[in-house]
Design a protein around this nucleic acid. Structure first.
Length: 274
DNA sequence: CATTACCTGCAA
DNA sequence: TTGCAGGTAATG
């Protein structure tokens, strides 16, 4: 499910509800393998009593700053959903862990496919997480000249380059296709073949596509919900993603779906130039 | 770069 | 029954 706009909403809605709250402990876990560091037992020990200072996002990670120098980092991968529930809520078939709060509320993590990942990090671990990712595309640091530099590096096609989290953080399959449509660039274009003009357009288009996603509360194809349990609406505003067989909103040609770098890829064969 | 693996559920 | 899904890591 979640790419930058969805994780942004997940983090914001979580922060709105639990900033300042105190974690009593890990009250339920049924998939210990999702805790990457430390071990589940040590995690349970360390998380008990922590206060949540702030909730933010880095790349596709929800990052919660805790007291005593700890950071809780949660990746939703494909089907993860974090919600805040009342004291009466019970784990269901897809609930992977629950954190109890001192006021009785509970932070639930549901994840059908069990791909979600959880880490409790010290300052060094947090620094490593940060270093593992590229520029935040909605930050000031993301400029056309930086994109020009990224694009010139190697002989890869443009779509897989957009999906590379070590280059630009947070773009996934939906927003890569949407951004390339806005920029009128074919997903199979050699990245290094982009003109200065196209790089300008792509830079602006990445921001437009992500901002549009945020504006509409993220995209809910199946699982995505924010921490209030609400779906996003951006799927109603897709230009190409899942629009195969529909007319291109710009030129009217039929949108096609193909495979690029092993991912389903949607584009207009007429107005996205190869 | 491509393929496979990790998991589960759903639509074709 | 098969293939596919918003993501990523590990392996040829």
């Amino acid at each position: 499910m979640p790419e930058l706009p969805e994780v942004e909403h997940a983090a914001r809605s979580l922060g709105a509800q639990v900033t300042g709250a105190q974690i009593v402990g890990l009250s339920y876990i049924d998939w210990e393998r999702m805790i990457e560091t430390p071990t589940a037992a040590i995690f349970a020990d360390l998380i008990a009593g922590r206060q949540i200072i702030e909730v933010g996002r880095r790349a596709k990670w929800i990052v919660a700053t805790l007291d005593q120098g700890w950071t809780l980092a949660l990746h939703l991968r494909m089907s993860g959903v974090v919600t805040v529930q009342g004291p009466e809520a019970q784990p269901n078939k897809h609930t992977r862990f629950v954190l109890g709060l001192s006021d009785g509320r509970q932070i639930f993590f549901d994840d059908t496919r069990k791909f979600g990942r959880l880490r409790l990090l010290d300052a060094q671990g947090l620094a490593l997480l940060d270093q593992a990712h590229g520029v935040e595309p909605l930050s000031e640091a993301f400029t056309p000249s930086l994109l020009a530099q990224i694009v010139s590096e190697r002989g890869t096609r443009i779509k897989p380059l957009l999906l590379d989290q070590t280059k630009i953080a947070g773009i996934g399959n939906i927003y890569a296709d949407e951004a390339l449509w806005h920029a009128q660039i074919h997903p199979m274009r050699a990245a290094s073949s982009l003109s200065a003009d196209e790089i300008e357009r792509l830079h602006a288009s990445i921001i437009v596509a992500l901002q549009q996603g945020i504006t509409h509360g993220g995209s809910t194809l199946r699982d995505y919900r924010n921490s209030y349990g609400e779906k996003g609406n951006n799927q109603e505003h897709f230009r190409v993603y899942n629009q195969q067989g529909e007319p291109c909103p710009r030129c009217g040609s039929m949108i096609e779906k193909t495979i690029v770098a092993q991912r389903g890829t949607h584009y207009c064969p007429n107005c996205q130039t190869l």
